[in-house]
């Protein structure tokens, strides 16, 4: 069973190797003339003000939290989807109950204006 994952690991390693090798080969060919202005962050030609790692909206965190709930839900549903045909009605009812709960959650988030982008 685990032997099937030889391919997965090999794909991973060879892909990394491919990028490393082409970056290395490119390094032999390309020029390298750094100076402070070239290495400064690009802000449309002006000298940058402050750090590049600025503060950003809290909205992003809230969306990430909502995403987490639905992504984990989808993960659970994969197992359910595979056996649904054999398991029949009981599994279907349980699945519907699960999805309905999340649907209520979605509507709650919607009503609480969590999904509103401002």
């Amino acid at each position: 069973m685990l032997a099937a994952y030889t391919d997965v690991v090999t794909f991973l390693l060879v892909a990394v190797l491919f990028i490393a090798a082409s970056l290395f080969l490119g390094g032999l060919l390309r020029p390298h003339h750094p100076y402070p202005e070239k290495l400064s962050p690009y802000e449309c030609g002006k000298a940058p003000i402050g750090s590049g790692q600025v503060r950003f909206k809290v909205r992003y965190y809230i969306f990430a939290l909502v995403f987490l709930v639905f992504d984990v839900e989808a993960l659970f549903l994969y197992a359910w989807a595979v056996i649904l045909r054999q398991a029949g009605w009981p599994a279907l009812w349980e699945g519907i109950a699960f999805v309905a709960l999340l649907f209520v959650g979605l509507i709650y988030a919607w009503r609480k204006k969590v999904l509103k982008w401002v």
Binding site: P41, E43, P48, G52, F56, Y60, A64, F67
Partner: peptide, 18 residues
């Protein structure tokens, strides 16, 4: 990248992708 544009673009794309 230490660049404001990059950070903004990355956050937007993360929000979009999720």
């Amino acid at each position: 990248s230490d660049n404001k544009w990059s950070l903004m673009g990355a956050l937007r794309s993360a929000a979009q992708l999720i």
